[in-house]
Design a protein around this nucleic acid. Structure first.
Lengths: 331, 331
DNA sequence: ATATGCCCTGAAATTGTTTTCAGGCACAGG
DNA sequence: CCTGTGCCTGAAAACAATTTCAGGGCATAT
């Protein structure tokens, strides 16, 4: 069918071993041979079958990034960080999506077990901590962006508790006391942590926690809109709203704009993620920025380290976040 | 190192051939053997090495989708269409990004040449038509979303000329005569086609083409903002603006909103792509919707057909688009 | 009793590459 | 002239699976 190393060897009048040496740029091969082989390769239009190579070498130099869907443009910087770092070490990054299905996530991890890739990174896993811990013990598996409580696997993330706390503290320092929270019923650990930060900030400032100020929805913008409408129809309206994602915050502001609420004065808004639209949408949204590129970079570095290590590093690395202050907090 | 089929065979007291038969659910194997093998597999925690299997079978059942970056959330529906269709036929879809670098695009195509995947789909290629035509002649390669003039390769897209024309015709039918165009200097074929549609619509309606009404920028929202500002500072202002992407349109409307222009009355806006934000942003944007899911579905179906065919199908399939009419055209 | 057919099994070939090992050759030093 | 050294080379093993082929065992038919 396809042209193989054997055909090249035959055409160049050398052994397949010599062709292989040329392909891999080994030093111990004569110039004549190199010339002849390269000539044959060109004429035949040969390109090596990596299945053979990978099998023999037991490595593919490929890493799989498993994400929920390509919808969240938010992942894109993380992926870039992963790719650039991987490439500099001679690896390629492939992406696959789970569509929020834990079974499909497991199916994709099959690529790791079956040696189709050398390592895998989960960005927002759907599987539980126990399962992942077990898998990570025997395979080159890491997590990024999301940590999992009690999960013994290499993790790179930010401190979402502290980040939520910082955002809410900022609102409190602006003199706000009735702070609404818009979050999701879907309990990703990061959502849980951000909510925890919200509560800690209130507590440390002696503000009583009021459950009616917390709206649980989905993660679409329209859910943010509904959340804002609900919070604003309370007898005692909030004077600030913290949303656990920019998407929710933007949805929320849509209601506020429609209702004629003065954003940044009457009610302050704080988002999370610093997505592209947070500074396209008017008014510009104050938000928490994570070091996306750096998280991608670090997780790949550590993952590749682990591939060569005898005992894998299963630490959790938390990178620093920062507050981006814009119009919605009156800045 | 790892546990292989040999270990399983030994543990189950059968030959590796029998283990292989069990793994592949062949009928001609006794129940006792099946039992013993499955038991051994479980005890050893064995999972087959696909490199061996793929090499022997000369197929990986994997398809590579090559995109520019995961930033354009716009791709996500296409990918979903690809994945769902592929999965139903027993294939997995992997994604890789070129970061707009034609060299890297070629590097990624190496996965196709080296038999690491069974087929590849380019979504918005950076390579030229000639190169792609040659590659497609010898490998299982297709294009989706973007066509390339004179490229002899399986392509699934929409008719961007007609779509641009439809959008502009709609504006004309609303009584508009001075229609601005916001586009990009980066000449993707789809941009060229949409601009062509714009000109054809004008021509067919006897409206002279006015170059000062065309703004060439990048594809960021801020470029749309600049474009709108420039067009609105003309002596003879436009009464409608067609942007070749929603992103540009949203950027443009940001200027209009800030300048107090009555969107949907004074100036109509028409976008392209129907991205998520086009109905989050207020006012809601009228836009052209492409059948993303269907394009993804069709390209995979045709690509898989091509894998089994003796002579590959190199046709271009154009799927129907539709106009989504919202507030920005006064609907 | 022998032949026929079916079910199940394992040895060995096969897939395309890398790597090991042994040896051929030339050249320098004794 | 002989030996050691270094460079280059090819045959064959290895990687982990699938598939082919031949045959053993058993039941049924003749």
């Amino acid at each position: 069918m396809s042209v193989t190393i054997k055909d090249v060897a035959h055409k160049a009048n050398v052994s397949i071993a010599t062709v292989s040496r040329v392909l891999n740029h080994k030093s111990n091969v004569s110039e004549d041979a190199v010339e002849a082989v390269n000539q044959a390769i060109k004429e035949l239009g040969y390109s090596p079958n990596f299945l053979g190579r990978d099998l023999r070498k037991s490595e593919t130099r490929r890493i799989l990034a498993i994400i929920a869907s390509t919808e969240q443009s938010f992942y894109s910087e993380v992926i870039r960080g992963m790719e650039e770092t991987a490439m500099s070490k001679g690896y390629d990054v492939l992406i696959a999506t789970t569509r929020d299905d834990p079974n499909h996530e497991m199916h994709l991890l099959g690529m790791l077990f079956s040696h189709s890739v050398d390592g895998a990174v989960l960005l927002g896993p759907k599987l539980d901590a126990k399962t992942i811990s077990e898998l990570a013990a025997n395979h080159n598996l890491a997590m990024c962006l999301e940590r999992l409580d009690g999960c013994k696997a290499l993790t790179v993330t930010i401190n979402n508790v502290q980040a939520g706390k910082d955002a809410v503290n900022y609102l409190i320092n602006k003199g706000r006391r009735r702070i609404g929270l818009i979050t999701t019923t879907q309990r990703a650990q990061s959502s849980v942590d951000r909510e925890l930060g919200y509560r800690q900030a209130l507590e440390e400032n002696g503000i009583p926690y009021d459950p009616s100020l917390v709206y649980y929805g989905t993660y679409g913008a329209d859910s943010g809109t509904r959340g804002c409408r609900e919070l604003m129809s309370l007898e005692k309206k909030p004077d600030a709203i913290f949303a656990i994602s920019d998407m929710l915050a933007i949805g929320a502001m849509n209601h506020a704009l429609a209702a004629g609420i003065k954003i940044g004065k009457e009610v302050l808004f704080f988002g999370f993620d610093d997505i592209q639209y947070s500074h396209i949408f008017i008014p510009h949204l104050s938000t928490v920025r994570q070091p996306c590129f750096m998280q991608g970079k670090l997780v790949i570095e550590k993952l590749i380290d682990n591939m060569r290590a005898e005992t894998p590093d299963t630490s959790t690395y938390m990178l620093p976040h920062s507050l981006i202050l814009r119009e919605t907090t009156g800045d």
